[in-house]
Amino acid sequence: MRNILKILSLIYVLVVVTGCETDTDVEPPKFVKKPSINCFLCPEDQNIYAELCYTSPYFGVLPDTDDYILDANVKLFDLTESDSAVLFLSNSSGVYKTTQNQIKIKENHQYELVVETSDGKVHKAQSIVPPKLDLSQVKFTYLKVGAPILDSNGRGGGGPGGTYEKNPFTVEFYYTGALSKDFFINPQFEAEMINKSKQIIPVEMMGRGKEDFYQGTAENSIRVYSNREFNSGFGIDGPFEVNSIGGTLYSVDLAYRNFYISQGNANYSDNIFNEPLMMISNWSKDAIGFFGSYNFVTGEVYRK
């Protein structure tokens, strides 16, 4: 009797536990076809591109090819100087193009991109081109390589007999030039670390996550702070010093920033533990994508 009760209890639990999860087809959300339009202006780029493509269904049979928009009317307007140019289809991948021979891209000018699709809908977005920054306005307030941490477990690969160092590296600088709060700075720097033996380790100081874009401020002083580590690898030992820092300093508008943040976070959009990542589009209704602007300056900002 006891065995029977035990078996019955186990069967009951099995039935309940295994029957708890079912997998059923339900009617999905209706697919809404929208144009996805990306275009970024930069005074340094001779060519101006706009990419147009329709969204694809998420549910149902997924198409093998992208639905490029090949029959749109695309026009770029300089609202500051009353200038305009038509972008013409340049390839079968939905890329429309013009050049700065047709319309100049100038700092602090406001542009509007107007796209009319074959269904008669007109989609608009605006962007102001940020100014080129001045590298001499980068003022370092903190630049330090911390004491190295030796990894005795030898993780990271490499041959035997060598040490593997992790080197904490902290940098803080201020961009002291004027920049409107409508714009953001995004440093894409590379630092050159050097030890007593004159061995050089290049270290990237760049990123396109939300913490890598720093908003302009009325105080004319944008703080950039970074706390990272670099690995010197086997056979190259510290302590290290910062020998030089250089690279490209971008000034971007909100659309450009949001474009990169949305790319970086796209990994999480399917995770059920995450909030859905809504498109932060700056297009008018029924279109997605970004129309943004950026500028950049390249050079060295520090040398020991």
């Binding site: 697919f31 809404v32 990306n38 493509c53 269904p57 992208d66």
Partner: peptide, 10 residues
Amino acid sequence: PQGTVNASAH
């Protein structure tokens, strides 16, 4: 999701 924007499109 109502649709998707494919990476290869841009």
